[in-house]
């Protein structure tokens, strides 16, 4: 049952909320999901508390099957361990659980992404004298290697969706459709990029991400303009379904508590 005020909440929502809700809808029930820090964790937990209660969330801190009742600010908060089915050591989470191919979906953020879903989280500018030193790889390179598929979420602007990455931290589709096979990367790689403006899906034939959906109130031209490369647009661009009252109240309850 909807909470009081949930219905009227549908009228107003932020573009970040739309992005989180759209990302959450990508996770189907029963999926095993390796959750990156930040927005991916919010989206994955929104899915778990709404449409996909049996999604299994795995955190790189070693928590398997965490069911937090509030949004943890880090990937190692106590609530993730206390609510987990199992907590394992970090070498084990990467070796036995991720590298072995047990994870269906990797959920990643990015500072920069290119048209082939390659990701930079290392530096802006030259590596040896960077303009901005970013946190670095974390778990992302091997999440991008070994998960069945990868979903990327980030805010849409030309500095984030770029023509050329300053540094390839994690490999999407490399330079050509055969790159993953040639490099020995077992997963299918990034299939979806969800931003605060719309949804891009990987098209293997053209070997790049194509705009397939815009969020309510966003024009295709806005998305093209906010993209650092010449964005391909699908013949038919759908409009993302606006966040429902249930989705919004769950998100706000979860993130706010």
């Amino acid at each position: 049952m909807a909470e009081p005020g949930a219905t009227s909440a549908v009228d107003t929502w932020t573009s970040d909320e739309m992005m989180t809700v759209a990302a959450a809808r990508e996770l189907t029930n029963g999926t095993v999901c390796f959750v990156g820090i930040g927005l991916p964790s919010t989206a994955a937990n929104l899915a778990r508390t709404t449409s996909a209660p049996d999604v299994v969330l795995i955190y790189e801190s070693g928590c398997i099957g965490s069911k937090p009742d509030h949004l943890p600010p880090s990937i190692g908060d106590g609530v993730l361990a206390r609510t987990a089915d199992a907590v394992v050591a970090v070498p084990e989470i990467f070796a036995y659980w991720l590298q072995s191919g047990r994870v269906d979906v990797g959920f990643l953020g990015a500072a920069q992404v290119d048209r082939r879903g390659n990701i930079n989280t290392t530096v802006v500018g030259d590596y040896h004298s960077p303009t901005v030193r970013l946190p670095g790889a974390g778990g992302a390179p091997e999440i991008a290697t070994s998960c069945g598929r990868v979903i990327i979420t980030l805010r849409h602007n030309p500095r984030a969706l770029v023509e050329k990455l300053d540094f390839v931290t994690s490999v999407g589709h490399g330079d050509d459709p055969d790159a993953r096979r040639r490099l020995g990367l077992p997963g299918a790689g990034p299939q979806t990029i969800i931003t605060d403006l719309g949804v891009l899906r990987y098209d293997r034939v053209v070997n790049e991400f194509v705009l397939t959906s815009v969020h309510p109130g966003v024009e295709v031209a806005n998305v093209v303009q906010a993209t650092g490369w010449r964005l391909l647009v699908a013949e038919t661009v759908a409009q993302t379904v606006a966040p429902t009252g249930d989705e919004l109240s769950a998100l706000r309850r979860f993130a706010g508590s």
Partner: peptide, 13 residues
């Protein structure tokens, strides 16, 4: 050993 780094710039620097 691990299955990783292939194709990344980390492997270069």
């Amino acid at each position: 050993i691990l299955r990783g780094y292939a194709g990344t710039d980390l492997a270069t620097i």
